[in-house]
Simulated assay, not measured.
Amino acid sequence: MINKLSTKPAAATPAEPATFSSTEPSFFRTVFTSTAFMIMLVVVALILLFGVLSPNGVFLGAANFRNLALDSAQLILLAVGMTFLVGAGELDLSIGANVILSSVVAAKVITMLGGTPEEVLAGNYQNVGVAIVMGLLAALVTGTLFGVVNALLVNILRVNSFIVTLAMMSVGSGIAYIVTGGVNVSALPRDLQRNFGSADLLGVVPVPAVIAIVVGIVGWYMMTKLRFGTHTLGMGSSIRAAQRAGINVKLQRIRLFALMGLIAGMVGFIDISRFLTTNIQGHQGDALAAIAAVVIGGTSLFGGRASVLGSMIAAIIPAILINGLVIMRVGSFYQLVVTGLILLIAVGIDQRRRAHSS
């Protein structure tokens, strides 16, 4: 009798509702407390703030959102590549120089293949299609080779990538100055800007922004679904443990820096396609801005943890701040202050994360 009474409740107790009610809150709690979601809230708050402070609410205009998409596309791309490096415990301070050198090589190729010097100077490109395609390939190859050289130096010299890329930053900038004679390459074909740099997909989203989103999605898939991402984070957690697990650390490092270089070359081509000229004195703060976006986005500055999605969202913040300051007629030199402050905030956030996890 006692046995029958004791077995009744067990048989009558439903298992499925209990499982459903326990997993549903945890799912939403995970989403709402994720780094990417919190950064998205910051982005929305900044947009609303500048929308209120800007004259006549011009910050919230469609034209300004298009400018924001264009301005943030290049940093989003660099942040995606930097996420893999930082997640592996590496750094690349030379990406700004890589962008400059890649853009210079691409511009030189375009002007050489576009026609005679007189025709090019007059903007009369006879072989514009071939010139643009070859210029794009030149930018991608230059950027990739630059990244591979960084990795080979780290592997051969067995020194920290911080030191190697700091030196390569000067080397890359110096080569760009030598190639151009210290003068920007201009007079690039208008078709490059009209059909790519300032073009809109379906008349809505700028093409460079679409490229940034696509690259980000591919980067997220590589990081979360492929062994490439697993090996990357394994290196960041412990080089020795990664080697014991059978990961070819040197080869993986070459792949990571090559990926970063490929993206830098892409950014260099986007840069000249937007402005129809190189900018050999620019891009000095690209590395710091990318690292700041990566760390704010949830990637550990010491490796082992990475978030491509978080990096992409965080990369929008500098563009919003700089755009908002310009609209409010704050001097452009404050951009350096903003970049420095963002980097300090990023380091502080990363230290708090490490202290909390330990």
Rank of each mutant, 00 (worst) to 15 (best):
I2L: 15
L5Q: 10
T7Q: 15
A11Q: 11
P14A: 10
E16W: 15
E16G: 08
A18N: 12
F20D: 04
S21E: 03
P25W: 06
S26G: 07
F32Q: 09
F32L: 11
T35S: 15
A36G: 10
F37V: 15
V44M: 05
I47R: 01
L48S: 08
G51P: 14
P55S: 10
V58R: 08
F65V: 00
A69C: 09
L70G: 00
L78W: 02
L78K: 00
A79H: 00
V80W: 00
V80E: 03
L85I: 14
L85G: 13
G89M: 06
E90S: 04
S94Q: 11
A97F: 08
V104Y: 03
V105H: 00
V105G: 01
V109E: 00
M112P: 00
G115S: 05
Q126M: 08
N127G: 02
G129T: 08
I132A: 02
A138S: 11
V141C: 06
T142R: 07
F146C: 11
V149L: 13
I156S: 11
R158T: 09
V159H: 08
I163Q: 02
I163C: 05
M168L: 14
S173D: 12
I175F: 05
G181S: 06
R190A: 14
D191W: 10
A199Q: 06
D200E: 14
L201F: 15
P206Y: 04
I211N: 00
V215N: 01
G216S: 05
K225W: 02
R227G: 12
T230V: 14
H231N: 15
R240V: 14
A241L: 13
N248P: 02
R255A: 10
A258D: 00
L259R: 05
L262I: 07
F269T: 05
I272N: 02
F275R: 03
L276V: 15
I280Y: 04
I280F: 10
Q281A: 11
Q284Y: 06
G285W: 09
D286A: 12
A289K: 09
I291Y: 07
A293F: 01
T299F: 09
F302T: 14
G304C: 04
R305T: 13
V308R: 00
L309Q: 03
G310R: 02
I316C: 07
I317F: 03
A319T: 12
L321Q: 07
I322W: 06
V326N: 15
V330E: 05
F333S: 14
L341H: 04
L341N: 06
I342H: 00
L343Y: 09
I345P: 05
V347F: 11
I349F: 13
D350Q: 09
R354V: 13
